[in-house]
Design a protein around this nucleic acid. Structure first.
Length: 277
DNA sequence: TTGTGTTTTATTGCCTCC
DNA sequence: GGAGGCAATAAAACACAA
């Protein structure tokens, strides 16, 4: 506390008021003048009427910090709910009504705003945290789903490669096909399917006719290239009997089908990029 | 009763606005 | 330059466990 000119102001709750170097007249520190007198302190939560009791102040001064009564706080709270800023008129009226100094009312509002701000920060923090937790958990489940799909693609790819080897062994025509042309492999299979060749073929038995259509190839060249290069397992999804109903891969095929009509060029890329992610 | 943590009241210094 | 708001802080009052 800084030093300054001390005087007694009976209207200020009987406190000693200090005229210091503050920004305004009542911006001073209260001084505890004679601590012995504090033993005669007035009880807390005294009524506003008591606060105006001059006889009381004559005997009890100086005072220490004093809490407001429940009624005073209640009224201040109600006023704060209406408007948390205090215009001069309202401040004066409230002060009169409560038997307080306008400065006390202003200070109460200031402290109340600070408390409100703290609570608000806590609320905001809680909101952000629960939002983060929720996002974090969906992110985790998406990651898991991604891993699962990758594993699925891997196993289907392996199966397809096994079938390719089987077809090569049983069909000499395919042996003559260029080794770097997996698309040719599938086209040959398609031919076999459409010509009604022996139904003992593994492909014929298990591949869904909805994907390897009879007649002209279902797949555009680029798409076939992609499939033969490793994603062809799409067809084999049903091999496992795993019926995820409307599965990710099946849905993709629907998308692919639509896109094929529009621009076959992009199809392969689409499938690849979707699977890769 | 006492030590300790929390809440409330009040002050101080700085800043912005008019 | 005065008035008022805000952040930081002090200090009294209060709550509560040991």
């Amino acid at each position: 506390m800084e030093s300054g000119r001390i005087f007694f102001d009976p209207s200020y709750n009987g406190n000693v008021v200090f005229l210091g170097n503050g920004d305004s007249v009542y911006r001073g520190a209260r001084m505890a003048m004679n601590m012995e007198e504090t033993s005669k302190r007035r009880p807390f939560f005294s009524s506003p009427e008591e606060l105006y009791d001059e006889e009381y102040y004559d005997e009890q001064l100086p005072e220490k910090k004093r809490r407001l009564t429940l009624e005073q706080v209640h009224l201040l709270e109600k006023s704060f709910e209406t408007e948390n800023k205090l215009e001069p008129d309202r401040k004066t009226q409230l002060a009169k009504k409560l038997g307080l100094q306008p400065r006390q009312v202003a200070v109460w509002f200031q402290n109340r705003r600070a408390r409100w701000k703290t609570k608000q920060l806590e609320r905001d923090y809680d909101k952000l945290k629960s939002s983060y937790d929720s996002l974090s958990s969906s992110y985790d489940s998406i990651l898991k789903e991604n891993e699962k799909l990758k594993a699925e693609v891997f196993s289907l790819t392996e199966k397809l490669q096994g079938k390719e080897a089987a077809v090569e062994k049983s069909d000499p025509v395919l042996v003559d096909a260029p080794a770097d042309s997996p698309a040719q492999l599938i086209l040959n299979v398609e031919d076999r399917l459409s010509s009604g060749s022996d139904g003992s073929s593994a492909v014929d038995d298990q591949e869904g006719p909805q994907l390897v259509d009879s007649g002209d190839s279902y797949f555009p060249n680029n798409y076939l290239g992609c499939v033969a290069a490793g994603v062809g397992g799409i067809q084999s999804e049903e091999d496992d009997g795993s019926d995820d109903g409307g599965s990710y891969l099946s849905n993709m095929l629907v998308v692919a089908e639509k896109q094929e009509e529009e621009e076959g060029e992009l199809l392969g890329w689409h499938i690849w990029s979707t699977l890769d992610n």
